[in-house]
Nucleic acid binder design. Structure first.
Lengths: 208, 208, 208, 208
DNA sequence: AATGAATGAGCTTTCATTCAT
DNA sequence: TATGAATGAAAGCTCATTCAT
């Protein structure tokens, strides 16, 4: 992947090296969760990981790359959830598929809510490289789904915009829910409500 | 409460001091806009403002307070917009009032879109003090409006929650629009679409 | 007094000015007591005194001079106590006079124990100008007294050395007492014990 | 207690690190001697030591800890002198043992007189942590000795108090001697005089 | 005389990064 | 390869002092 902005310094070909890379990422995740991005220092990460600072720099050429890798991994998991939701509901109607997506979003937030929120709100902008932003690939699946149902969506809005807005919408609601009423994520009626809202946006009926 | 941790160190008494405070805030805003919160350093702000670092600390006991003051000022302007929207539409129907609010939000984003987004997404949490968080007073006016129309809103959701979500929702959409399609803010149909969405949330009609 | 290292910038001839000088000194003393020498800053002193920082510098050309003035005043009071003890016991025997001096020392410590200890132990050396060191004039009176009784003191020790050692001795004991058993200052038998000790030094009897 | 506030940040593992720690302490001692505690700044110490400021903070988490370490080292040497004096005179009479202690004190002052006096008089109180204050362990040996001879000491004074006062006494005298007549430390009769004084305190004979 | 706004050298401390071993 | 000692730019902040008003 030559067009990635930051490459890993060295592909960990050996078992030992792969393990080290993993241990370092786990330590980074731990500190991100506990202390946010501002709390991450390479020295702390190396210590927590039980490796020398030199080793960390063997595999991650900078702090930014380390965090970017962690973010990429996380969004890769998210993408899989959405991909799964897409595949699992192939052929079904829009409401069912929308529900599957909302539930995938909720699962995503359950994976590691604190990390998710740190990665989404606590990272300086320069952390996000356009083609690195895995949110993109998450949205790809939403676009695919909306495109499958493009005739059920109201006119005058592009699929790309609708996908982006749908994602923002659900993220905003879930972010809010996680912060202020985390138990609602487990509440079945909450899911239905969000789905309703999403559908209302995608194909609003007259409100009168 | 003159000893609040997040108060100014010293009230500017003379004209010259008021000017200095202002110049410092403007410099802070400038750097926030250009380089985000992480880019703000007291030395850079002082230099940009053309005052000594000592003068900065004469009025702002810490970097955090400076940013908090800037945030307070900004949200104070927002609150006025929302208050105006509330007052101007007193007695009208929910759709009209919702539209007034959405337009107020858009105006808010036009005030200083980049600053707005930095203040909303780039600030560490500790920046937000409970009674200092001016987003609260913005929400107060949304709550007031929703409360006026509480019978037109679907059951099972508290006014407070609905207000928070409405705000998050509109913010998320506008944030997205500002980043990816800033011209849409000027598009009349965009406003209508957002209003539709908001109403769909507040009182969804059967989508069947 | 042209040979004083630091002169007051200006003799306070007017009533108002004298009052200001006093208020500043009192504020300085207060802060010395509460926060030690390290806690003294000219700005804090001026604020505590209720005068502007500019006024402080009108009367005290530097922080060092301010503290030196406070120290001089304090040791001036001490000197008066010792002078009084000398005068009051003129013509009496050594033990009585020694007791008078020890009691004067105790009174000195009672004047302002904390300030005394701060002035004696917490001040950087450069604070002490040879001819400014009012401890000198305190010792002068001890020397005078010992000289009156030079025949009752053992041979082989100069009056100057004996005076200095006597003072160090009593100071060391009292300093220790103030820190670790302040109530002993009020105990009559404590006084007698210190006197005993002092006499034992000045004219030791065979201990066999 | 590996997490004590006043511990070193990191134990030096390699030879090079041990050397660095030492060089830093030596530089700190040098500056303490020349400019007193107020003259100590971490930058000056690092520069004098010829290491980077970062290296200093690698081993000493704060300026305070650095000075505390220097003090600990110094008093450790003192303790050894007193311990030696105690052991060397086991079984002898009080006057001999007292003399041994006074001579140990004199040796202590000869080790590094200026540093000794700076560490004893120029340090802010917060520098002294209860169990860190090595003066305590010096006093322990005096207490041990006095306890061996408790029947030869006058009644009505606890061993602990007597030990503290004896130490203060000898310190005060020597401090004075060092400042005003350093050659007296080499004078045999001076030693005898101090011993006499100490014994006079511990068991005063009637002066009548 | 008095005020207080302004100054800036200098302090303590952090942390991403390098490099000799 | 792995280690960890060393680096030093740069950050936040203090405070004695000056000077325009």
């Amino acid at each position: 992947m030559p067009n990635r902005k930051f490459d890993l310094k060295k592909q960990p070909l050996q078992e030992r090296a792969k393990f080290t890379v993993d241990v370092i990422k786990q330590a980074g995740i731990h500190i991100l969760r506990e202390q946010g991005y501002a709390g991450v220092t390479t020295n702390k990460v190396a210590e927590k990981a039980g490796v020398s600072i030199g080793s960390l720099y063997q595999y991650f050429p900078s702090k930014e790359v380390l965090v970017a890798e962690i973010k990429r991994d996380h969004f890769c998991q998210l993408r899989q959830l959405f991909q799964q939701a897409y595949d699992d509901t192939a052929g079904q109607a829009l409401p069912e598929r929308a529900k599957a997506f909302v539930m995938a979003s909720i699962d995503a937030h359950r994976l590691d809510p604190v990390l998710h929120s740190v990665l989404n709100t606590d990272l300086p902008d320069f952390e996000v490289k356009e083609d690195d932003d895995s949110a993109v690939s998450v949205r790809k699946w939403i676009e695919k789904l909306l495109d499958d149902h493009r005739h059920e969506i109201r006119d005058g809005v592009s699929i790309a915009v609708a996908a982006r807005l749908s994602y923002s919408l659900v993220e905003a609601i879930l972010h809010d829910a996680v912060s202020h009423a985390p138990e609602s994520l487990e509440d079945a009626s909450f899911v239905d409500e969000v789905v309703l809202m999403l559908l209302a946006y995608l194909k609003p009926a007259p409100t009168g």
